[in-house]
Protein backbone atom coordinates (compact mmCIF):
# COMPACT_ATOMS: atom_id res chain seq x y z
CA UNK A 1 0.00 0.00 0.00
CA UNK A 2 1.32 3.44 -0.88
CA UNK A 3 2.26 5.93 1.89
CA UNK A 4 -0.76 8.10 2.59
CA UNK A 5 -1.16 11.41 4.39
CA UNK A 6 -3.41 12.42 7.27
CA UNK A 7 -4.10 16.03 8.24
CA UNK A 8 -4.68 16.99 11.89
CA UNK A 9 -6.36 20.25 12.84
CA UNK A 10 -5.92 21.12 16.52
CA UNK A 11 -8.58 23.72 17.41
CA UNK A 12 -7.90 23.37 21.13
CA UNK A 13 -4.12 23.94 21.19
CA UNK A 14 -3.52 22.77 24.78
CA UNK A 15 -0.88 20.66 26.45
CA UNK A 16 -3.36 17.76 26.60
CA UNK A 17 -4.14 17.86 22.90
CA UNK A 18 -0.42 17.74 22.15
CA UNK A 19 -0.24 14.52 24.14
CA UNK A 20 -3.38 13.23 22.45
CA UNK A 21 -1.79 13.83 19.05
CA UNK A 22 1.35 12.10 20.31
CA UNK A 23 -0.73 9.08 21.32
CA UNK A 24 -2.50 9.03 17.99
CA UNK A 25 0.72 9.13 16.06
CA UNK A 26 2.63 6.62 18.13
CA UNK A 27 1.28 3.62 16.37
CA UNK A 28 3.78 1.43 14.59
CA UNK A 29 1.06 0.06 12.31
CA UNK A 30 0.02 3.56 11.28
CA UNK A 31 3.48 5.10 11.03
CA UNK A 32 4.57 2.47 8.50
CA UNK A 33 2.01 3.63 6.00
CA UNK A 34 1.15 7.20 6.91
CA UNK A 35 2.57 10.67 7.02
CA UNK A 36 0.87 13.06 9.40
CA UNK A 37 0.72 16.84 8.94
CA UNK A 38 -0.58 19.28 11.53
CA UNK A 39 -2.38 22.07 9.69
CA UNK A 40 -5.15 24.65 10.00
CA UNK A 41 -8.68 24.29 8.63
CA UNK A 42 -7.98 26.07 5.35
CA UNK A 43 -4.93 23.97 4.58
CA UNK A 44 -6.76 20.78 5.54
CA UNK A 45 -9.59 21.68 3.17
CA UNK A 46 -7.13 22.39 0.37
CA UNK A 47 -5.35 19.08 0.94
CA UNK A 48 -8.67 17.25 0.93
CA UNK A 49 -9.84 19.02 -2.23
CA UNK A 50 -6.62 18.08 -3.98
CA UNK A 51 -7.08 14.48 -2.85
CA UNK A 52 -3.73 14.70 -1.05
CA UNK A 53 -4.93 13.40 2.31
CA UNK A 54 -6.82 10.27 3.26
CA UNK A 55 -8.47 11.79 6.32
CA UNK A 56 -8.64 14.97 8.35
CA UNK A 57 -8.76 14.71 12.14
CA UNK A 58 -10.24 17.74 13.87
CA UNK A 59 -9.70 18.12 17.63
CA UNK A 60 -12.49 20.54 18.62
CA UNK A 61 -12.11 23.65 20.74
CA UNK A 62 -12.74 22.95 24.42
CA UNK A 63 -11.84 19.29 23.99
CA UNK A 64 -9.39 19.24 26.93
CA UNK A 65 -11.73 21.20 29.19
CA UNK A 66 -14.64 18.85 28.48
CA UNK A 67 -12.56 15.70 28.87
CA UNK A 68 -11.42 16.93 32.31
CA UNK A 69 -15.07 17.40 33.29
CA UNK A 70 -15.91 13.93 32.04
CA UNK A 71 -17.83 15.32 29.07
CA UNK A 72 -17.58 13.64 25.74
CA UNK A 73 -16.70 15.95 22.86
CA UNK A 74 -16.08 13.71 19.88
CA UNK A 75 -13.01 14.19 17.75
CA UNK A 76 -14.11 14.58 14.17
CA UNK A 77 -12.55 12.22 11.66
CA UNK A 78 -13.36 13.09 8.08
CA UNK A 79 -12.47 10.27 5.71
CA UNK A 80 -11.74 10.97 2.08
CA UNK A 81 -14.54 9.26 0.16
CA UNK A 82 -12.31 8.93 -2.87
CA UNK A 83 -9.93 6.68 -0.93
CA UNK A 84 -12.34 4.50 1.03
CA UNK A 85 -10.00 1.66 2.01
CA UNK A 86 -7.33 3.92 3.47
CA UNK A 87 -9.98 6.11 5.13
CA UNK A 88 -11.48 3.04 6.82
CA UNK A 89 -8.04 2.00 8.07
CA UNK A 90 -7.59 5.44 9.66
CA UNK A 91 -11.07 5.14 11.18
CA UNK A 92 -10.31 1.79 12.85
CA UNK A 93 -7.00 2.99 14.21
CA UNK A 94 -8.57 6.24 15.47
CA UNK A 95 -11.20 4.23 17.33
CA UNK A 96 -8.43 2.39 19.19
CA UNK A 97 -6.57 5.66 19.73
CA UNK A 98 -9.71 7.20 21.27
CA UNK A 99 -9.90 4.32 23.74
CA UNK A 100 -6.25 4.78 24.65
CA UNK A 101 -6.82 8.48 25.25
CA UNK A 102 -9.84 7.68 27.42
CA UNK A 103 -7.71 5.24 29.43
CA UNK A 104 -5.06 7.92 30.06
CA UNK A 105 -7.47 10.78 30.69
CA UNK A 106 -9.69 8.79 33.08
CA UNK A 107 -6.63 8.13 35.23
CA UNK A 108 -5.60 11.80 35.20
CA UNK A 109 -9.15 12.89 36.06
CA UNK A 110 -9.36 10.42 38.97
CA UNK A 111 -6.20 11.78 40.58
CA UNK A 112 -7.42 15.37 40.22
CA UNK A 113 -10.90 14.47 41.51
CA UNK A 114 -9.62 12.69 44.64
CA UNK A 115 -7.24 15.56 45.43
CA UNK A 116 -10.06 18.08 44.99
CA UNK A 117 -12.28 16.04 47.31
CA UNK A 118 -9.67 16.36 50.07
CA UNK A 119 -9.29 20.12 49.43
CA UNK A 120 -5.66 19.81 48.48
CA UNK A 121 -4.17 23.23 47.63
CA UNK A 122 -4.31 24.28 43.97
CA UNK A 123 -0.55 24.41 43.47
CA UNK A 124 -0.18 20.78 44.66
CA UNK A 125 -3.11 19.69 42.47
CA UNK A 126 -1.62 21.48 39.48
CA UNK A 127 1.78 19.87 40.05
CA UNK A 128 0.17 16.44 40.36
CA UNK A 129 -1.88 17.09 37.25
CA UNK A 130 1.23 17.88 35.18
CA UNK A 131 3.05 14.88 36.59
CA UNK A 132 0.11 12.54 35.92
CA UNK A 133 -0.39 13.90 32.41
CA UNK A 134 3.18 13.04 31.52
CA UNK A 135 3.13 9.73 33.33
CA UNK A 136 -0.14 8.47 31.83
CA UNK A 137 0.87 9.61 28.37
CA UNK A 138 4.09 7.64 28.64
CA UNK A 139 2.09 4.74 30.03
CA UNK A 140 -0.08 4.72 26.92
CA UNK A 141 2.85 5.20 24.58
CA UNK A 142 4.41 2.06 26.05
CA UNK A 143 1.32 -0.06 25.36
CA UNK A 144 3.21 -2.22 22.89
CA UNK A 145 5.38 -3.64 25.66
CA UNK A 146 2.53 -5.83 26.93
CA UNK A 147 2.97 -8.09 23.93
CA UNK A 148 5.54 -10.76 23.36
CA UNK A 149 5.61 -11.73 19.69
CA UNK A 150 6.21 -15.27 18.46
CA UNK A 151 6.10 -16.42 14.85
CA UNK A 152 4.86 -19.93 14.18
CA UNK A 153 4.99 -21.66 10.82
CA UNK A 154 4.82 -25.09 9.30
CA UNK A 155 6.53 -26.43 6.23
CA UNK A 156 3.76 -25.81 3.74
CA UNK A 157 2.39 -22.62 5.17
CA UNK A 158 2.49 -19.71 2.79
CA UNK A 159 2.93 -16.04 3.52
CA UNK A 160 0.34 -13.62 2.28
CA UNK A 161 2.25 -12.66 -0.89
CA UNK A 162 2.71 -16.32 -1.76
CA UNK A 163 -0.98 -16.86 -1.08
CA UNK A 164 -2.01 -14.21 -3.57
CA UNK A 165 0.49 -15.32 -6.22
CA UNK A 166 -0.74 -18.93 -6.06
CA UNK A 167 -4.33 -17.79 -5.83
CA UNK A 168 -3.97 -15.69 -8.99
CA UNK A 169 -2.15 -18.58 -10.67
CA UNK A 170 -5.09 -20.84 -9.93
CA UNK A 171 -7.53 -18.26 -11.27
CA UNK A 172 -5.52 -18.14 -14.48
CA UNK A 173 -5.79 -21.94 -14.79
CA UNK A 174 -9.54 -21.58 -14.44
CA UNK A 175 -9.69 -18.83 -17.08
CA UNK A 176 -7.48 -20.84 -19.47
CA UNK A 177 -9.62 -23.95 -19.08
CA UNK A 178 -12.69 -21.90 -19.91
CA UNK A 179 -11.00 -19.91 -22.70
CA UNK A 180 -9.73 -23.06 -24.38
CA UNK A 181 -13.26 -24.42 -24.63
CA UNK A 182 -14.60 -21.07 -25.92
CA UNK A 183 -12.03 -21.15 -28.72
CA UNK A 184 -12.78 -24.79 -29.42
CA UNK A 185 -16.53 -24.17 -29.81
CA UNK A 186 -16.11 -21.89 -32.80
CA UNK A 187 -13.89 -24.38 -34.67
CA UNK A 188 -16.67 -26.90 -35.06
CA UNK A 189 -19.77 -25.51 -36.73
CA UNK A 190 -22.97 -27.29 -37.80
CA UNK A 191 -21.90 -28.49 -41.27
CA UNK A 192 -18.56 -29.76 -39.99
CA UNK A 193 -20.27 -31.60 -37.16
CA UNK A 194 -22.59 -33.30 -39.65
CA UNK A 195 -19.62 -34.39 -41.74
CA UNK A 196 -17.84 -35.73 -38.67
CA UNK A 197 -21.00 -37.53 -37.64
CA UNK A 198 -21.23 -39.17 -41.04
CA UNK A 199 -17.77 -40.61 -40.45
CA UNK A 200 -18.66 -42.04 -37.07
CA UNK A 201 -17.20 -39.22 -34.99
CA UNK A 202 -20.10 -38.44 -32.75
CA UNK A 203 -20.51 -35.33 -30.60
CA UNK A 204 -19.68 -37.52 -27.62
CA UNK A 205 -16.25 -38.36 -29.05
CA UNK A 206 -15.69 -34.82 -30.26
CA UNK A 207 -16.38 -33.27 -26.86
CA UNK A 208 -14.18 -35.72 -25.00
CA UNK A 209 -11.38 -35.20 -27.51
CA UNK A 210 -11.72 -31.46 -26.86
CA UNK A 211 -11.62 -32.14 -23.14
CA UNK A 212 -8.42 -34.19 -23.48
CA UNK A 213 -6.84 -31.46 -25.62
CA UNK A 214 -7.82 -28.82 -23.03
CA UNK A 215 -6.34 -30.85 -20.16
CA UNK A 216 -3.04 -31.44 -21.96
CA UNK A 217 -2.66 -27.86 -23.21
CA UNK A 218 -3.69 -26.10 -20.01
CA UNK A 219 -1.59 -28.47 -17.85
CA UNK A 220 1.41 -27.72 -20.02
CA UNK A 221 0.91 -23.94 -19.86
CA UNK A 222 0.29 -24.18 -16.11
CA UNK A 223 3.49 -26.14 -15.65
CA UNK A 224 5.46 -23.53 -17.60
CA UNK A 225 4.01 -20.75 -15.48
CA UNK A 226 4.81 -22.65 -12.31
CA UNK A 227 8.54 -22.39 -13.11
CA UNK A 228 8.90 -18.64 -12.39
CA UNK A 229 6.72 -19.06 -9.28
CA UNK A 230 8.99 -21.84 -7.99
CA UNK A 231 12.00 -19.69 -8.81
CA UNK A 232 10.48 -16.77 -6.89
CA UNK A 233 9.32 -18.58 -3.77
CA UNK A 234 11.37 -21.77 -3.79
CA UNK A 235 10.03 -25.29 -3.93
CA UNK A 236 7.74 -24.68 -0.93
CA UNK A 237 5.36 -22.83 -3.25
CA UNK A 238 5.01 -25.40 -6.02
CA UNK A 239 6.67 -28.79 -5.63
CA UNK A 240 6.02 -32.12 -7.31
CA UNK A 241 3.03 -32.75 -5.05
CA UNK A 242 1.58 -29.42 -6.14
CA UNK A 243 2.17 -30.22 -9.80
CA UNK A 244 0.07 -33.35 -9.45
CA UNK A 245 -2.61 -31.34 -7.74
CA UNK A 246 -2.45 -28.79 -10.57
CA UNK A 247 -3.19 -31.53 -13.12
CA UNK A 248 -6.10 -32.61 -10.92
CA UNK A 249 -7.35 -29.02 -10.81
CA UNK A 250 -7.05 -28.61 -14.61
CA UNK A 251 -9.01 -31.85 -15.00
CA UNK A 252 -11.75 -30.59 -12.71
CA UNK A 253 -12.05 -27.14 -14.30
CA UNK A 254 -11.99 -28.56 -17.84
CA UNK A 255 -14.59 -31.23 -17.00
CA UNK A 256 -16.80 -28.62 -15.37
CA UNK A 257 -16.63 -26.18 -18.28
CA UNK A 258 -17.11 -29.01 -20.78
CA UNK A 259 -20.31 -29.93 -18.96
CA UNK A 260 -21.41 -26.29 -19.13
CA UNK A 261 -20.55 -26.14 -22.85
CA UNK A 262 -22.69 -29.20 -23.50
CA UNK A 263 -25.67 -27.86 -21.60
CA UNK A 264 -25.49 -24.28 -22.94
CA UNK A 265 -25.52 -24.24 -26.71
CA UNK A 266 -25.76 -20.46 -27.15
CA UNK A 267 -22.28 -18.85 -27.35
CA UNK A 268 -23.26 -15.65 -25.58
CA UNK A 269 -24.97 -17.49 -22.75
CA UNK A 270 -22.02 -19.86 -22.42
CA UNK A 271 -19.69 -16.88 -22.13
CA UNK A 272 -22.00 -15.18 -19.67
CA UNK A 273 -22.33 -18.24 -17.45
CA UNK A 274 -18.60 -18.85 -17.67
CA UNK A 275 -17.71 -15.30 -16.61
CA UNK A 276 -20.34 -15.40 -13.88
CA UNK A 277 -19.03 -18.68 -12.48
CA UNK A 278 -15.43 -17.49 -12.65
CA UNK A 279 -16.40 -14.35 -10.75
CA UNK A 280 -18.39 -16.24 -8.12
CA UNK A 281 -15.53 -18.72 -7.76
CA UNK A 282 -12.97 -15.92 -7.45
CA UNK A 283 -14.90 -14.10 -4.72
CA UNK A 284 -16.51 -16.94 -2.75
CA UNK A 285 -13.59 -19.30 -3.30
CA UNK A 286 -11.20 -16.96 -1.50
CA UNK A 287 -9.05 -15.59 -4.32
CA UNK A 288 -9.66 -11.96 -3.34
CA UNK A 289 -9.96 -12.22 0.44
CA UNK A 290 -8.93 -15.48 2.17
CA UNK A 291 -11.96 -17.54 3.22
CA UNK A 292 -10.95 -17.34 6.87
CA UNK A 293 -12.13 -13.69 7.03
CA UNK A 294 -15.56 -14.47 5.50
CA UNK A 295 -18.85 -14.38 7.36
CA UNK A 296 -20.38 -17.85 7.80
CA UNK A 297 -22.90 -17.63 4.97
CA UNK A 298 -20.24 -16.63 2.44
CA UNK A 299 -17.93 -19.37 3.69
CA UNK A 300 -20.75 -21.86 3.11
CA UNK A 301 -21.22 -20.58 -0.46
CA UNK A 302 -17.45 -20.90 -0.90
CA UNK A 303 -17.65 -24.60 -0.01
CA UNK A 304 -19.74 -25.13 -3.13
CA UNK A 305 -17.14 -23.61 -5.47
CA UNK A 306 -14.42 -25.63 -7.15
CA UNK A 307 -12.06 -22.76 -6.39
CA UNK A 308 -12.10 -23.21 -2.64
CA UNK A 309 -11.24 -26.93 -2.96
CA UNK A 310 -8.64 -26.18 -5.61
CA UNK A 311 -7.02 -23.56 -3.35
CA UNK A 312 -6.94 -26.02 -0.48
CA UNK A 313 -5.41 -28.61 -2.73
CA UNK A 314 -2.69 -26.36 -4.10
CA UNK A 315 -1.69 -25.13 -0.63
CA UNK A 316 -1.78 -28.56 0.95
CA UNK A 317 -1.29 -31.25 -1.73
CA UNK A 318 -1.70 -34.00 0.88
CA UNK A 319 -5.15 -32.84 1.98
CA UNK A 320 -7.27 -35.92 1.27
CA UNK A 321 -10.58 -34.12 1.59
CA UNK A 322 -9.81 -31.74 -1.27
CA UNK A 323 -8.36 -34.56 -3.40
CA UNK A 324 -11.55 -36.57 -2.92
CA UNK A 325 -13.79 -33.60 -3.56
CA UNK A 326 -11.99 -32.56 -6.77
CA UNK A 327 -12.08 -36.18 -7.96
CA UNK A 328 -15.77 -36.42 -7.20
CA UNK A 329 -16.55 -33.18 -9.05
CA UNK A 330 -14.48 -34.29 -12.09
CA UNK A 331 -16.12 -37.72 -12.30
CA UNK A 332 -19.61 -36.27 -11.76
CA UNK A 333 -19.11 -33.67 -14.52
CA UNK A 334 -17.75 -36.29 -16.95
CA UNK A 335 -20.55 -38.77 -16.20
CA UNK A 336 -23.29 -36.12 -16.49
CA UNK A 337 -21.79 -34.89 -19.78
CA UNK A 338 -21.50 -38.42 -21.16
CA UNK A 339 -25.06 -39.34 -20.16
CA UNK A 340 -26.45 -36.11 -21.59
CA UNK A 341 -24.60 -36.54 -24.88
CA UNK A 342 -25.54 -40.23 -25.20
CA UNK A 343 -29.23 -39.60 -24.54
CA UNK A 344 -29.14 -36.58 -26.85
CA UNK A 345 -27.56 -38.72 -29.59
CA UNK A 346 -30.30 -41.34 -29.18
CA UNK A 347 -32.94 -38.62 -29.33
CA UNK A 348 -31.44 -37.34 -32.59
CA UNK A 349 -31.34 -40.87 -34.08
CA UNK A 350 -34.98 -41.42 -33.22
Amino acid sequence: MQLFEIAIVDDDQTLETKYVIGQLLDNSHLSKVTKVTIVDHAKARTLMEKNKVVATIVIPEGFSRDVKKGLNTPVEVIGNGDRPLQAQLVRHLMESAAKLTTAAQSGINTIDHFLAEENVPDDVRHAEFKKSLLSFSLHILGRGTIFEMKEKKNLFQQDILQYYVLSFYLLLIMIWSFGFLVLLRERINGPLRNRLNSRGITEWKEKFAGFAAAVVSVSLISYLLSLPITWLFGSSAINYGNLLSIVRIVLTFSAFFMMLAVFVSNDQLFLLFGIGLIMIGAVAGGHVIPVVYFPDWLERIGMFTINSWALRSVFDPADMQSIKMLGLITISCLVITAVYLKTGYRRCKR
Binding site: A97, K99, R143, F147, Q158
Partner: peptide, 27 residues
Protein backbone atom coordinates in the same frame (compact mmCIF):
# COMPACT_ATOMS: atom_id res chain seq x y z
CA UNK B 1 5.11 -9.18 27.98
CA UNK B 2 2.00 -10.26 29.83
CA UNK B 3 0.26 -11.27 26.59
CA UNK B 4 1.89 -13.55 24.07
CA UNK B 5 0.99 -13.05 20.40
CA UNK B 6 1.41 -15.92 17.97
CA UNK B 7 1.47 -14.91 14.35
CA UNK B 8 2.03 -16.88 11.16
CA UNK B 9 3.38 -15.71 7.79
CA UNK B 10 -0.29 -15.59 6.77
CA UNK B 11 -1.32 -13.07 9.45
CA UNK B 12 -2.74 -9.93 7.86
CA UNK B 13 -4.56 -8.02 10.56
CA UNK B 14 -2.72 -8.74 13.81
CA UNK B 15 -1.57 -5.07 13.95
CA UNK B 16 -5.16 -3.86 14.14
CA UNK B 17 -6.19 -6.55 16.65
CA UNK B 18 -3.14 -5.77 18.79
CA UNK B 19 -4.25 -2.11 18.98
CA UNK B 20 -7.73 -3.22 20.08
CA UNK B 21 -6.34 -5.53 22.79
CA UNK B 22 -3.78 -2.91 23.86
CA UNK B 23 -6.55 -0.35 24.31
CA UNK B 24 -8.65 -2.75 26.41
CA UNK B 25 -5.60 -3.68 28.50
CA UNK B 26 -4.74 0.02 28.87
CA UNK B 27 -8.16 0.52 30.41
Amino acid sequence: QSIEVWISPFSMAEGIVREVIASETAR
